[in-house]
Design a binder for these strands. Structure first.
Length: 385
DNA sequence: TCTGGGGTCCTAGGACCC
DNA sequence: TCTGGGGTCCTAGGACCC
């Protein structure tokens, strides 16, 4: 989906069309301020709904920016304070995940009604297997892609960009070619001309670290990566990553479109308004800790899962991360038990430095029903003879 | 001007068992 | 008395993605 969160907000507030708008989480000033520059131009937007980026205080990051805001160099994952310097006049809207999820469900329903083999990749992205969809091969998939775009737009008012290719790896790259509201068809024989000139970073799975390492070896483009012998890549990056890098550069990817999966873990975490100290802010930390446990437990219960591995995550003021976890006998979804085990984890981690973030995680999940079936029988008081 | 939240997967060492 | 592999589980950290 194109600029998904921002596009949903533009449906709600059409008078923002063409203006720089950013969607950001985190905290804002108590009093949301409407900047004078926009006074009179925005009609009936409730003042409480938004503020202006330059008035933001806090530690949030941008989740989405409209194309008008992107023109100022503002982009996702950028700190709000930095974005405010680049584009102080941008309208700032708080995130409304519930609303985005509603639109997410809607566009996925549309896709499923047309092409039932769909893999969920988060709130705004999916893989679709065109192979067995009637007409899915016409014009290399362009006809079906156009149909999907039209049906999604009719149902939601939103635009999306679609890449069609022989596998997920190339399709993902192709989907970026003609954003927004674009379609790109990439054939196997297009590899050299359309994929090899791209930066390695465009490969889904090559992040900042691998990219840096590749740069260190003088490898910038996918074509340069493809030129390296497989054995050399294995020697540099290890058996698994090396082989994968080679395959990816040559456009090879056999992963199926996975239509169903079970969650592995659920977690809640929060970044504090200010860094907290384990001793000096003990009461506040304890309260936040308990709330996180309650939230995870509620998530587990609502979704019908229980887990055996309880863990915590700390981020220190210097941004270093520490995790601890402990596995228990029986899966649980109980807030008090999670709190108790997480408390034990907390005792095993250094607490001298101040903390920026605290998180609680439950892993090794299984459906709560299955978990109940594995529970040992309730002990019976032995009869006394 | 400091950098969110919720996930998945991989690696590597150690414990433990056969 | 000393020495084998193989397999699974647990734990901590890290890379990456949306």
């Amino acid at each position: 989906m194109d600029a998904f969160y921002a596009s949903v907000e533009l449906l709600r507030y059409p008078q923002l069309a063409g203006l720089p708008v950013v969607i950001g989480g985190g905290r804002r000033d108590e009093d949301d301020v409407l900047v004078k520059a926009y006074a009179g131009r925005l009609g009936e937007i409730p003042l409480a709904a938004f503020s202006v980026l330059k008035d933001y205080v806090g530690r949030g990051v941008i989740t989405t920016a409209t194309y008008a805001a992107r023109a100022f160099g503002v982009g996702s994952a950028m700190g709000m304070m930095k974005a405010a310097r680049l584009c102080p006049q941008a309208i700032l809207l708080p995130v409304d995940f519930a609303e985005y999820r509603r639109y997410s469900r809607r566009f996925k329903e549309v896709i499923l009604s047309i092409a039932p083999v769909m893999e969920d990749r988060g709130v705004d992205e999916v893989y679709i297997d065109f192979t067995d969809v009637p007409g899915g091969q016409r014009e290399g998939g362009r006809v079906l892609a156009r149909l999907l775009q039209k049906c999604i737009h009719d149902a939601t008012g939103l635009t999306c960009s679609i890449g069609v290719a022989p596998n997920k790896l190339i399709a993902k790259m192709a989907s970026e070619f003609n954003k927004p509201n674009g379609i790109a068809i990439v054939w196997p024989e297009d590899l050299q001309e359309r994929i090899w000139p791209l930066a390695c970073r465009k490969i889904n799975g090559i992040g900042p670290k691998t990219n840096e390492k590749l740069h260190g070896h003088g490898i910038t483009t996918i074509g340069e990566l493809a030129a390296r012998p497989r054995d050399w890549l294995v020697a540099q990056f290890g058996k698994s990553t090396g082989a994968w890098l080679h395959a990816a550069a040559w456009g090879r990817d056999e992963r199926p479109v996975v239509t169903e999966s079970e969650p592995v873990s659920m977690s809640r975490e929060t970044t504090f308004e200010r860094d907290l100290h384990a001793v000096r802010d003990r009461a506040l930390l304890g309260q936040i800790f308990t709330e996180l446990c309650q939230q995870v437990a509620a998530d587990l219960q609502r979704k019908g899962y229980a887990g055996r591995t309880i863990g915590i995550k700390l981020r220190y003021e210097d941004f270093k991360i520490a995790t601890r976890d402990q596995t228990i006998e029986q899966p649980t979804q109980d807030a008090a038990l999670i709190r108790r085990i997480a408390g034990l984890c907390l005792k095993r981690v250094p607490l001298e430095r101040r903390l920026r973030l605290l998180g609680v995680r439950v892993g090794a999940l299984m459906p709560a029903q299955a978990a109940a079936a594995t529970a040992p029988p309730v002990p019976v008081t032995p009869e006394l003879f």
